[in-house]
Simulated scan of single mutants.
Amino acid sequence: MPHIDYYFSTLSPFTYLAGLGLEEIATRRAASISYKPLDIMALFARTGGTPPAERHPARQEYRAQEILRLSKKRDMQMQLKPAHWPTNPAPSSYAIIAAQKAGGGDLGALVHGILRACWAEDRDIAADATVRDCLSAAGFDPALADSGLLAGAEAYAANLEEAVAQGAFGSPFYIVDGGQRFWGHDRLEDLDLHLAGRI
């Protein structure tokens, strides 16, 4: 069974716009997924990236146009300037880490629910109520928001180190066992073709 390490930030608009494409591919190709939320700003700093707010105005303007085009193309609601962005991604990331460890719910739905809360619903994903709602909606115990904070912090930091070591530098980033790397929502088709043995 192929395995995918999925590195992402719960603050990333492009991760939100990827929707549940990864989960659909994993189901189709009988692949497993390890969800590895991380600190995207720290990843940028470690791998030569530039935070969006520090990019040249032309790059910022293009990014905004691209986000809106993609959201319309995929018929996904999008707030270009969410009320709570940027915010602290740690609480939502810790909840994902705790949910993955606990099991019993739909992890893909949890991740997408958190991203949708930020980018489509103008909710603060650092707020306990938002995280609890997302956990519950995805079939997890909302009390996971309160448990395993130390373990979550340790895993969150470890995910960053692992991402750097494996060559990840953005979000979403998919690495298949064997070392094939795919960066971005727009590389999901290539990931699918790779798992099918076609590229």
Rank of each mutant, 00 (worst) to 15 (best):
D124Y: 06
E162H: 13
G113H: 08
S171V: 14
P89C: 05
P82I: 00
P89H: 04
P89L: 02
A58D: 15
M78L: 13
D146M: 03
S92L: 02
F140N: 01
K101E: 15
S92F: 00
C118H: 05
G104I: 13
Y94P: 00
K36H: 13
H84M: 07
L149S: 03
E54S: 13
D141W: 01
A165R: 12
Y156Q: 06
A158S: 12
R123H: 09
A102T: 06
F44W: 09
A64G: 07
R55L: 11
E154T: 13
A168N: 08
A83E: 13
L150S: 14
S71K: 02
A99W: 02
E54L: 15
A90E: 09
W85T: 01
K101P: 05
L144K: 00
Q79R: 11
I114K: 00
A145T: 03
V164E: 06
L160S: 06
W85M: 07
S147M: 08
A138N: 07
E66G: 06
P172H: 12
S71I: 08
M78F: 14
A165S: 12
A151C: 09
G148C: 03
Y35E: 13
W119V: 01
A168L: 10
E54R: 10
E154G: 03
L150V: 14
N88F: 02
D75F: 05
T50H: 02
P86S: 04
P86G: 06
M76W: 05
A42S: 12
P91G: 02
G49Y: 04
G49D: 06
Q60E: 14
K101M: 09
D106T: 11
K101A: 15
P89S: 04
E66W: 06
L150K: 11
A45K: 08
S92C: 05
K36L: 15
I97L: 14
I67V: 12
R69E: 08
A155R: 02
Q79M: 12
P57F: 12
K72M: 10
V131D: 00
S171H: 11
D122Y: 01
A151W: 01
A117N: 07
T50P: 01
Y35W: 15
G167M: 10
G48V: 04
I67L: 15
S171P: 12
K72V: 10
D146G: 13
A90L: 15
L107R: 04
A83N: 02
P37A: 13
A64E: 14
Y94Q: 01
V131E: 00
L110A: 09
A95D: 01
Q100H: 12
L160E: 09
A45P: 01
H56Y: 11
S93K: 00
E121I: 05
I114G: 03
Q79K: 05
A127M: 07
A138C: 11
G113M: 08
E54N: 12
K36I: 10
H56M: 11
P37W: 01
P37N: 10
G48D: 03
N88M: 04
Y94E: 00
D122S: 09
K73C: 07
H56T: 11
I96M: 13
A143C: 03
C118R: 02
A64Q: 14
P91Y: 00
I125F: 06
Y156V: 01
S71G: 06
D75W: 02
D75R: 10
S92Y: 00
N88L: 05
N159W: 05
K36T: 11
A143S: 14
L160C: 08
W85E: 01
M76T: 08
Y94I: 00
T50E: 07
G103L: 11
